[in-house]
Write a protein that binds this DNA or RNA. Structure first.
Length: 321
DNA sequence: GGCCAGGCTAGCA
DNA sequence: TGCTAGCATGGC
């Protein structure tokens, strides 16, 4: 399944690995989604079907390019990295990339389930091959989610960008492009709210993010434990921290962990999306969303993604057939 | 200028 | 348990 090659490129040796994804996977839909959900860590080269990004492998920042090859029905990603990675580091990076692309998510049973609803059936056609593009680790997933609380996506991306510039590690590729690796827990824990205030973080947002990083550094919170915990255990565990509510943890479990059955019923985007997709007269409240969403188990995360994406498509003025 | 953003806390009944 | 004011700032 994995193929190794060495390619001479200028003075720099590259490792190239091929990663196969479970079909269908639509790179096109991912690119569309990134238009309305910008990721300041990604350099998107649409022409070359390539994403470039700085990863943190262990503690070390590493540049990698992810080139989409193949097709929706035979999806393949070519992962190019620096030659200086050890086999263990290379393996760790590949695991992260598979996670980010939800490489093993089989959409077949999800679509079968969604087709029971005419409104959702339309979305399975329109967004065929759309999957979660996950955060590379749980620390940054939570930080980005806290940043995203109650502000629009564009502003959230700006704030994330500024945090990267303040506390991340800068790298440069052979073409002179600069990339920022997400700040470490330690780097964020060392900050004070006054460092973030000039970047237009609210006082509270600054406190929440720094407190969260400190809780990890001092061992109050152990993110590795989450993988063994049930959804509701994770909610109870993390909402003990100030600034982290149910919505934030639900987003962490969806966008950080890739869990399939979360319903962030308080989410304003989901409320708008439900009204849009199901043609409701009024914007549904949290209780109403839980009532409607009960029928979506065990795929409530995927339903949410497709409903969010309907809002995104309208925002991008995509023609609705 | 007013309303909306992929919320949370604290205070109160 | 359930409701609400206040927070804080950009985008449209």
């Amino acid at each position: 399944m994995l193929r190794w090659e060495k390619i001479e490129e200028g003075a720099m040796l590259l490792h190239s690995t091929v990663i196969s994804l479970v079909p269908p996977y639509s790179f096109e839909r991912l690119l569309r989604r990134l238009e309305t959900h910008p990721d300041p860590q990604l350099f998107v080269d649409t022409e070359a079907s390539t994403l470039r990004r700085a990863f943190r492998v262990g503690t070390r920042p590493v540049l990698a390019s992810l080139q989409f090859a193949g097709s929706t029905e035979e999806p393949v990603i070519r992962l190019n990295t620096e030659a200086t990675l050890s086999p263990a580091e290379q393996q760790l990076l590949e695991k992260t990339v598979r996670h980010m692309f939800s490489a093993d998510q089989d959409l077949t049973p999800v679509y079968e389930h969604m087709r029971q609803s005419p409104e959702m059936a339309v979305l399975t056609e329109r967004f065929r091959g759309l999957r979660f593009f996950l955060d590379s680790d749980l620390f940054q997933s939570m930080v980005k989610t806290i940043i995203g609380q109650q502000i629009n996506l564009a502003f959230a991306a700006s704030l994330t960008q500024r945090l990267l510039e303040l506390a991340g590690d800068m790298m440069e590729d052979t073409d002179g492009r600069t990339f920022m690796a997400f700040p470490t827990e330690e780097a964020v824990a060392r900050l004070e709210p006054d460092d973030l205030r000039p970047l237009q973080f609210s006082q509270r947002k600054a406190e929440y993010i720094i407190d969260y990083a400190r809780a990890i550094v001092n061992g109050t919170i152990d993110l590795d434990r989450l993988w063994q915990m049930e959804d509701e255990e994770i909610v109870a565990y993390l909402t003990s921290l100030r600034g982290i509510g149910r919505w934030t943890v639900e987003c962490l479990m969806m966008f950080g962990m890739g869990r399939p059955d979360l319903l962030p019923a308080a989410d304003i985007g989901l409320r708008n999306g439900l009204q849009l997709v199901f043609g409701l007269a009024d914007k549904p409240d949290e209780k109403e969303i839980r009532r409607i969403g009960a029928a979506w188990t065990p795929w409530r995360s995927l339903y949410s993604l497709y409903i969010w994406e309907a809002v995104g498509a309208v925002r991008r003025k995509e023609v609705w057939e």
